[in-house]
Simulated scan of single mutants.
Amino acid sequence: MNAIDRKFFKEATKTRIEALADVCRNNRDSYKLDCAVDAAVQGRPAYWHSDSWSNSAANIIIGRANLTGSLDEAFASYVKDFGERDYWKIIHQLDATIPLNRPAAAEMVAIYSRLGHMRDVRELLDREAEVITNKLSRTA
């Protein structure tokens, strides 16, 4: 991929995530957005979430996942810093998480599997379109 392609891909990815954040009505602060864009553009697992800005746990976990490249590490560091009492069960956070690429969906499949739930990559990748469609239909 040449420099022009990379720049176009980065801008298109940023626009896509901004639109998703707008539909979900969640905080798309520039740092969190840049972390998600950079992860996606670099081919690392990249995530967003469907909860509103008031779910501070989701904001922290998704931010850390995009920085570290691992949702698993993000969950572990959140529990270490804040304790389990301060955040929903992992399954609830997973259900609110939107994978932005195939590596993210694959990691989520592994985490769901460890928790005894079946998900597949395609189902998780379709989550973005489902969230947009459902949220827009509720506001129409």
Rank of each mutant, 00 (worst) to 15 (best):
D72R: 11
Y47H: 04
T139I: 11
P103C: 00
E18Y: 03
A57P: 14
D126Q: 14
S52Y: 12
H92L: 07
R138D: 14
G43V: 05
L136H: 08
L125F: 09
G63K: 01
I90F: 08
E128G: 03
E18C: 09
Y78S: 08
I4T: 12
C35I: 02
D120I: 07
R6Q: 06
H49V: 05
V79T: 12
E128W: 00
L20D: 01
S113T: 12
E18K: 07
R28M: 09
W88F: 13
L115R: 14
A57C: 07
Y47P: 07
I91Y: 14
Y112W: 15
D51M: 14
A19M: 06
E130F: 00
I62C: 01
N2G: 15
Y47K: 02
S137Y: 05
A3D: 15
A96I: 04
I90P: 15
C24W: 01
I17R: 02
T133I: 08
G43Y: 02
D22I: 11
R102E: 14
E128K: 01
V23Y: 02
S70A: 06
E128H: 02
D5M: 13
E84F: 05
I91F: 14
Y78R: 09
T139G: 13
N101P: 06
S70T: 05
A106C: 11
L100Y: 04
H49C: 03
R127W: 04
L125S: 13
D95F: 10
S70K: 03
I60N: 14
K10N: 03
H117V: 13
E84C: 07
E11S: 15
S56V: 10
N26M: 09
D81Q: 09
S30N: 14
I132A: 03
T13A: 04
S137R: 10
D34Y: 02
I62P: 03
R127C: 06
A36C: 01
L20C: 00
I90Q: 13
G63N: 03
F8G: 09
A104E: 06
S30W: 09
D86W: 11
N55K: 11
G43D: 09
K7R: 12
T97A: 04
A40Q: 13
D29G: 15
A104L: 07
N27F: 03
I98F: 02
E18G: 05
A39W: 00
A58E: 12
L67A: 09
R85T: 10
S54T: 12
T13W: 00
V37R: 10
M108T: 05
V37P: 15
E128I: 00
E128Y: 01
V121G: 08
S70Q: 04
A105R: 04
S56W: 12
D86K: 10
S30L: 12
E84R: 09
C24E: 05
I90E: 15
D51L: 12
I111S: 08
Y112T: 10
K80L: 11
Y87I: 07
G63H: 00
F8C: 11
S56R: 11
A76I: 08
Y78G: 11
A110H: 10
Y78V: 08
K32I: 03
M108W: 02
S137A: 10
T68L: 05
T13K: 01
V109Q: 11
D51T: 13
A46S: 15
C24G: 10
R138S: 14
F82K: 14
R138A: 11
L67T: 06
L136F: 06
I17C: 03
G69Q: 00
